[in-house]
Amino acid sequence: MRHLRALCAIADTGSLHRAARELGVAQPSLSTQLKRIEHELGGRLFIRERTGCRPTPLGRVVLGRARPLVAEMRALVAEARATAAGGPRLRIGSTASRALAGWLRRLRQRPATDPALQMDVSANALLRMVADGQLDVAFVHEVEGSPLRVPDGLRTRVLVEREPQCVSLPNDHPAASRPVVRLTELAQDRWMIDPTVDGEWDAVQRMLRAAGIEPLVLHGDYHTAASLVATGEVVTVCQPTSPSRPEAAVRRIDGDPLGVRLLLAARTEEDLDSVFPELEEAYWETTLQAPAYREWLMTRGAPLFRESRGAPPAAVRRT
């Protein structure tokens, strides 16, 4: 299990240095451990590049099996500790979202509620964990054109039917001077995409091909991408609620060619009802901090304020 945790940490951080820091070990020790694992499995698991580490085809196969095992062990430990402390916790899974902090804050304000959190870049992995009883609910995104594999028996509720994805680019990029960017303006830039996010690499490829461009694409996690955007090395896709920073700008893509559907999954309608209102409020709270996205919603007739709760209602659909 220690080896599997190390492999997941390297993949998630995209760097031996950051993975070693996360695991609390020295980088040379982690490098030696990785070489030992690769020798045992008979092939390289990661390609080391100047920009970091990315999984090889063998590495992706191994990670596909390792992640559920590591997640299951974490869930087992969390559940055991919670039981020993006096009772079960609300077990939440989520892909990355700026609404997550507000959602957890609201849930913790309820009596006797202290949610446990499991993050994963794979929405499909989180859905399987809900179906297997390892999680109570999962908040995930479904990339347009790449339907999620929802296990039988799960109930889902849509938070946002289509959230348009934006592009993050260096603040001194010529295209950053305008609120909307044409993809052809980014044809000469290097793009960084995380291929471990379910469906995202395929969707970005389709988007770029439809625009008639074939830019150089680097593979890496989005934490690394954010750092490289700041130094002018790459551009990358991002959520519309992502904030612009002094070194990086978030801009809409002309025509909104890339979208995701945001949904909550659980085993019962009662589980959905128990946490959906707080998620809804938290998400719309983030839109108030993203002026460009708020304007986009307004042009499409989406309400942005609700006096009684301070947030607009989302379009809800039960399946």
Rank of each mutant, 00 (worst) to 15 (best):
A6S: 15
T13P: 04
G14P: 04
H17A: 14
A19T: 07
V25Q: 09
V25R: 12
P28R: 07
S31Q: 13
T32C: 04
L34F: 05
K35H: 14
F46V: 01
R50A: 14
R50E: 14
T51L: 13
G52T: 11
C53H: 10
C53D: 06
V61Y: 06
V62F: 02
R67N: 02
E72Y: 06
M73I: 14
A78H: 13
G86W: 06
G86K: 04
I92Q: 01
G93Y: 02
A96F: 15
L104K: 03
R105A: 15
R110E: 13
P111L: 10
A112I: 05
A112V: 11
D114F: 09
A116M: 09
M119N: 01
D120K: 00
A123S: 14
L127N: 01
M129N: 03
D132E: 15
A138S: 09
H141D: 12
L148S: 01
G153W: 03
G153E: 03
L154K: 06
R155G: 02
V158A: 01
Q165F: 07
N171V: 15
N171K: 13
P174G: 12
V180N: 02
V181E: 03
R182F: 05
R182E: 14
T184S: 12
E185K: 08
Q188F: 07
T196C: 09
D198T: 11
E200F: 11
V204D: 00
Q205G: 14
Q205A: 11
M207G: 03
A211N: 09
E214Y: 09
L216P: 01
L216K: 12
V217P: 02
H219A: 15
G220I: 03
G220H: 04
L228E: 02
G232A: 09
E233K: 12
E233H: 13
V235M: 09
V235Q: 06
V237G: 03
V237M: 13
S242F: 04
S244P: 06
P246V: 05
A248F: 04
A248L: 08
V250E: 06
V250I: 15
I253T: 02
L258V: 04
G259S: 12
G259I: 00
L262G: 00
L263C: 05
L263R: 05
L264M: 11
E270A: 15
D271Y: 02
D271I: 00
L279V: 06
E280R: 06
E281M: 12
A282Q: 06
W284Q: 13
Q289C: 08
A290L: 03
Y293K: 00
T299E: 14
G301V: 08
G301A: 07
P303M: 10
G310W: 08
P312E: 02
P313H: 10
V316A: 03
